[in-house]
Design a protein around this nucleic acid. Sequence first.
DNA 1: TGACTTAGTGTCAATCATACACTAATAATA
DNA 2: TATTATTAGTGTATGATTGACACTAAGTCA
Lengths: 229, 229
Amino acid sequence: MSSTYSYPRPALAVDAVVFGLDDAELKVLLIRRDLEPFRNRWALPGGFVRVEESLEQAVRRELQEETGIGQVFLEQLYTFGDVGRDPRERVVAVAYYALCKLSDHSIKAATDARDAAWFAVSEARHLAFDHDRILNVALERLKGKVRYQPIGFELLPPQFTLSQLQRLYETLLEQPLDKRNFRKKILGMDFLVALDEVQKDVAHRAARLYRFDDRKYRRLQKRGFNFEI
Amino acid sequence: MSSTYSYPRPALAVDAVVFGLDDAELKVLLIRRDLEPFRNRWALPGGFVRVEESLEQAVRRELQEETGIGQVFLEQLYTFGDVGRDPRERVVAVAYYALCKLSDHSIKAATDARDAAWFAVSEARHLAFDHDRILNVALERLKGKVRYQPIGFELLPPQFTLSQLQRLYETLLEQPLDKRNFRKKILGMDFLVALDEVQKDVAHRAARLYRFDDRKYRRLQKRGFNFEI
DNA sequence: TGACTTAGTGTCAATCATACACTAATAATA
DNA sequence: TATTATTAGTGTATGATTGACACTAAGTCA
């Protein structure tokens, strides 16, 4: 970076891959495009970055505008800058991925004017631009990251059962886990707090509820503890 | 991303954190700025992205122009987009990190017109812009990644001894490793090939040379093997 | 030829990961 | 109210992996 320039500039956009977990299926939030190019095709929410806002602010603003989603876990994913990725002109997109508790947002998104909807990840195909690729990269990142950082909790309600947590990992990792070993391991890490509550409205024995204790986790982390599933 | 826009755009730059390993010290390649702002301060090599080149092409072009470095391992790091990171105007920088065999490049860089030089990572402080931060992020990424991907070899000559490799890991991970356990582990993974050659010009028993076999590694990877140090 | 320097090698104990099956609690139904 | 259906909840034994540890071998140099 050496001197200011006034040559033609690439346009700069942000895109978001918003994941949610519905029972035992991973979902992604898409919006239907109402303009060319790729009119009527499904796409990741996103938009151009304004000069007075940071990248993360831009993503949050676009998410709010296009899908009504407010507070979510958000992390930068990758920047996609191939020359031909937008047919109109050169657009570089900084992609983020977000994790959210589906229950909070499912209704809003479905009824929003911009026609937003949750799709099973496996059915989200033939998206606009290079969004298939972005979704894939996000999925791989999520699968990788969930193993050694406790971000899975962002997909669950604040209080959850160990079975829900196990199903989450089984879904993301695409492999079955042994119930006893899973419980031994996750409880042994000592950052889950057992609550005095149990599930309501289930047609079988109600499971104990737990919550993730962020403070405990960070304290452990400082002592060199490493999360791993 | 919904419609073309003609509002003011952030400028788009790329920056590179080029790492090299000198004996047992990690080095980074910096260039001295000859223009304001931050004139005469050391900075990461980089520059603005042209509309007709991809991000990676832009990094490679700038590296070639500013430091003479050609073929290197290059991977995208993170995109830095805070509003105030460049005092002139809004500049978003896509940062890459590179790993290279220091011996190939040390002379060229040192004698280049643009005043480029290798610095011990620990001494590369007070850089221009937010480059201190970028360097830090790159360092953390390298330290993390080296544990579970065999990228360390990019810092060594094509033929190396196990002691050199061990020193590399000890430097990057900032912890001593047991010689026997290290050898057991790394040879057990079975992607190093022992050559029929030994070190030359050393004042003690010469060590056997090895090379990293990329094919073997990829074959293992396909079978679900996971590298880890 | 002796001193110095780095190369190269194996075992044992502790820890961790994995495989595995039954009883407990509750709701729904007959 | 007894029976059935469904999920919750729990421990042990075996094999695999990790980590601690010290000496001999080979070559250079004085």
